[in-house]
Amino acid sequence: MSKFLPLLDGLKLSHPLKTMSDDRKVQEAQYIWEHESLGGIAENNNPLPRPVVGLLILTFITAIAWTFPLFGQRPNAAIYADYITLMHSAPVQQVMNDKTLTTSARDEKAMKMIVGALADSDSPYEFQRIQHPISMNDLRIMEPGIIELQNQHADLREYSIIGNDVALANFEGNWKTDANGNFLKGPDGKKVRERLQPWWDKGYMTSVYYFFGFCFLVIITVKRLPPITWKPDHSIAH
């Protein structure tokens, strides 16, 4: 523990944002600061300019906002469930069986109908559907997989569309609970996680903790220096 004692040496917490060192410590620091010549180079005691502090705060907010686990993920099966329902609806089937059109024209027209029908619906998947447009052939390929999952009453949001497969997603989310809030248990007796990205993503929260740990330590480091109102006299050492 004695190794860490200098960290507490002269610690003063009455004005933590001004300085965390007592007067003796500050005087010592000022003496060294002014009396040493670092190969002909000196250092000033300026604070970061206000706009730059603002920029740094903005950086943190941006880091959090821009990397929020929203963008650029695999499409999940739920966003196409409505497509498949519509694909089996009478008007779409009528287009798909229309022998007067070529196969590709039929597919295109049918897909346009499906997308058009869903455009006005107030769906939570609207954004993702725009991000991951598909063709009728893609839809045909994923259809059996999605229907099978629907028959098993699986939560389609937990499945990603990966190429031709509908596969369980690569997320570790919240523990699964039943309607009463009790944890569901898997076949091995352990609690089961949702395969959904939770709003608190594990990596995301690690970052937040990490950042605050950093701020805490840097504030201590910087506030143990003499207050920013003091300007060193560089003529002494030279």
Partner: peptide
């Protein structure tokens, strides 16, 4: 296909590289 949490963590930290960058550029230019 790395774990998703690792990618989220890396991405936030990646933006935070701007902290040393901003501090450094200001210090030199000032």
């Amino acid at each position: 296909p790395l774990p998703e949490w690792l990618k989220s963590f890396a991405s936030v930290e990646g933006v935070l590289i701007l902290v040393p960058a901003v501090a450094y550029v200001c210090n030199i230019l000032l």
